[in-house]
Design a protein around this nucleic acid. Structure first.
Lengths: 230, 230
DNA sequence: TTAATTTGTGTTAAAACAACACAAAGTTAA
DNA sequence: TTAACTTTGTGTTGTTTTAACACAAATTAA
């Protein structure tokens, strides 16, 4: 048997979006040297636990959430001292969730769980700021070639919600007419007959939904989602 | 100290290209239950060894090569029995090399090392065929949005080499005039004044080089390499 | 010297993109 | 009740990019 003494953990960068602001979920550590320090949700995997399950378990335990979208981001194991106690290699996951769907509640190892605006993330433990930066990049680029924005929104949303999401995450202006034309041309967003009055003033807007079935169908026919517009 | 008994390995999917054929490097195992079986080059990491170094070391040891391009592909750890001896999580790397630059030589654990055409890869040990498939996908898509094709070619190459590389890897026809126009418009490929006579008949062609410095410069100015053509 | 092979080059019609402004439907305040 | 304000919803046009297409030039082989 080989002599190897390295531990394996998973960590998750969970993005949430609400009213023009992009948030990242962090938890406050309860125990150990980094007690009180904010870190990404995550932890060691169990001996007989698949990686994906470990992430899902930790998110449930530490913050009480279940995500809409989850994919591997990358594995951090080049800095052999990234955890000062002993060597830990961490598999980072990228996740999206609609914050409205959950009330955060810290459970096991976490003292607290909180959404931080992506522009105001405190200094996190380990190399977690690095992970957040990488994930943030991934989100930005993925938004343009995969319809993942919908995983951050309500099931039914106003077109302006979608537009604002793109605007704020990509940090640029968008021409409403061109954007709408393009999105609708894909045929993966359906107009419902519901109309919703804004809390504030203004003309009421129609609600739309993302048609995932249609999207999967189109994928088989070599459809390529792509939004790179003015 | 947590009770965790999982080993960590790295594996590499190394692509090589020569005369219209794309190859993947595999090695034949010398020891153990899978002796004689072809597998991807790789192995367990050392306690104080960064992941990247582990891959480079294994490639050197098992096949005698140093790659041109190396990036993380993904971590395989959901199937807890992917290695039947005990649980192993493997970090897979994606690599590109010009086969001409090396003579393969199996050294330590490997009995033999060999290039297999990507269309004729034997049944490999563990989940390595899955890794190859994923890497192959990555290569195809990355070829269109990152200038990595050059890492598979000689330093100086004919335009037709580049064109054939794209044709064969992406498995589609390319219009020579449009392709050339597009590539040259980026300004990252430089024409040398060398002319080379083909081994066979035909008009001699000029040699070109990839200007990496220029490419890095352009990147800072928000340049986006992108080849999606007829 | 003729045939075969490979490199190298330009134009045009069609499609996609970028830029642009105002009317409609509602709310709020005078 | 009217005027001001806010937000949704919609078309056109010039510009740029893309796709489709063919033949001459330089060399080797027969």
């Amino acid at each position: 048997m080989i002599d190897q003494n390295i531990k394996i953990a998973v960590d998750a960068i969970v993005f949430g979006y609400e009213k023009g602001t992009l948030y990242v979920l962090a938890v406050q550590q309860r125990f150990g040297k980094l007690a009180d320090r904010w870190v990404l949700p995550g932890g060691f995997i169990l001996n007989d636990e698949p990686l994906l399950m470990a992430v899902e378990r930790e998110l449930k335990e530490e913050a009480g959430i279940t995500v809409n979208y989850l994919e591997q981001l990358g594995t951090f194991g080049d800095d052999i001292n990234r955890d000062e106690r002993f060597r830990v290699i961490s598999v980072a996951y990228f996740a999206l969730v609609n914050p409205k769907n959950f009330v955060l509640k810290a459970d096991t190892d976490a003292k607290d769980a909180k959404w931080f605006p992506v522009t105001q993330i405190p200094e996190l433990g380990y190399d977690h700021n690095e992970m957040v930066n990488l994930a943030h990049q991934r989100l930005k680029s993925k938004l343009t070639y995969q319809p993942i924005g919908f995983d951050l929104l309500d099931h039914e949303f106003l077109f302006s919600d979608l537009e604002n999401l793109y605007c704020s995450i990509l940090e640029r202006d968008i021409d409403r007419r061109n954007f709408r034309k393009k999105i609708l041309s894909f045929g993966i967003v359906t107009e419902t007959d519901k109309v919703v009055k804004m809390g504030a003033s203004g003309r009421p807007g129609k609600l739309f939904t993302f048609d995932k079935t249609k999207y999967n169908q189109l994928l088989k026919e070599n459809f390529q989602f792509d939004i790179r517009f003015a």
